[in-house]
Design a binder for these strands. Structure first.
Lengths: 215, 215
DNA sequence: TCAAAAGTGTTCCGAATACACCCATGA
DNA sequence: TCATGGGTGTATTCGGAACACTTTTGA
């Protein structure tokens, strides 16, 4: 950190990867660009960092302005600073990833121009995204996969009350592999407690509802 | 990432945590500040990001300018953006951590004003550091501890040829706990191969020298 | 009464843990 | 010959992987 009297012509952006799971698929919130460059393409929701806000506050603002969501899980992902990432000017992008269950997202009243897109499809190249955002999403997707096993992020994708089969599907989608029911339950049971409610109405045995246990 | 025609008065710095292990202690390279603020205090070596360089290139430059080292292990750590971190101006600091064995560091001819300080001492509060650099080092130290177990970073702290007891000490220092010799060897043996050389001159049985095996 | 998915107990296996012992050197 | 640390084999424990089975509902 040197004294920087000469003036930097470098912009700082904060972009957010807002993930959710819907229809058994990992999806991400993208916005359609209304301006050049990449007009009409999908891009990550992002903001220019203001002098009066921290990085995390900027990320929260980005989420709030596009989706109305507040108080959701938000962690810094990585900072991207390649030279040609933004054709307009040299821009460093500090990225955050946010997680939510689709219920909250539906209820929050998102803007028009906000879409939920399958991450798998994006990584296959369809649709094409603005800037280097596909690469950023790929990086974030990998981080998610790694974090499932040694953190509690999976709980962020389900409502407060959830069934164990629901939670297991979250793990399976994030890990990209199927898990054995009995083993999953043994692994997860110290972290959850029954609410006493049941989820009924299915054409099979009802499942117990659980909540996350405070540890 | 919004069109940012209005001008940001935000500086981007790149600071580096250059760790090494010397005298059985984890140490970090610090520089003594010659200017206000925090004149005379130790600080992380850092540079102001230039328009023409990537973040990683800036980190490499920071290491090279202070220590002469090139081609060492370097990974992004975190980006710090609290409002009052730098009293001069709003500064976002993208941090990297670098690892090296002390032999390379000695041989590289570091500047005056460059010191190797014990990380444990710093975390205890002595010496006090400039800016929020103590907190940054604490964050980096924790990351190192976590990474030891699922990556190969320990090898970065030893020379190309090393003994298993040396490598075990690296693990122990990074983990902060002692390991069982036999178990450590079983864990590490798939990753190393004998060079055929021995380290002699000790008042006990000589130890075999190993190199990292390409996997 | 049957399909479908929820829910549970038990075995099996391999890796991490712990322990016990032998080996080669300098002094 | 002894202190010191290098080096190795084996028993034990624990958690994850795999399997087999029972339960409860709607249709």
């Amino acid at each position: 950190m040197k004294n920087n009297s000469s003036h930097q012509k470098i912009s700082v952006a904060v972009d957010v990867l807002l993930f959710t799971i819907e229809d058994d698929k990992l999806k991400i919130v993208l916005v359609k660009r209304k301006e050049k460059p990449f007009k009409g393409s999908f891009a990550l929701p992002g903001v220019a960092l203001r002098e009066s806000e921290t990085l995390k506050e900027a990320a929260e603002r980005s989420v709030r302005e596009r989706t109305g969501l507040k108080n959701i899980f938000l962690e810094q992902l990585y900072t991207f600073g390649e030279l040609e990432r933004d054709p307009r000017s040299r821009t460093v992008s500090v990225t955050y990833y946010a997680l939510t269950d689709p219920g909250k997202l539906d209820a929050s009243g998102a803007d028009d121009g906000v879409s939920l897109i399958s991450v798998d499809e994006i990584l296959k190249g369809d649709p094409e995204l603005a800037f280097d955002h596909r690469g950023i999403i790929e990086y974030g997707r990998n981080r998610l996969g790694g974090k499932v096993n040694y953190s509690d992020i999976a709980f962020e994708f389900v409502p407060e009350e959830f069934t164990l089969p629901q939670l297991q599907r979250v793990y399976e989608i994030l890990l990209g592999e199927n898990l054995y029911k009995a083993n999953f339950r043994k692994m997860i049971s110290p972290l959850v407690e029954e609410t006493g409610n049941m989820l009924t109405g299915m054409a099979h045995r009802p499942s117990k509802l659980y909540r996350r246990k405070e540890v």
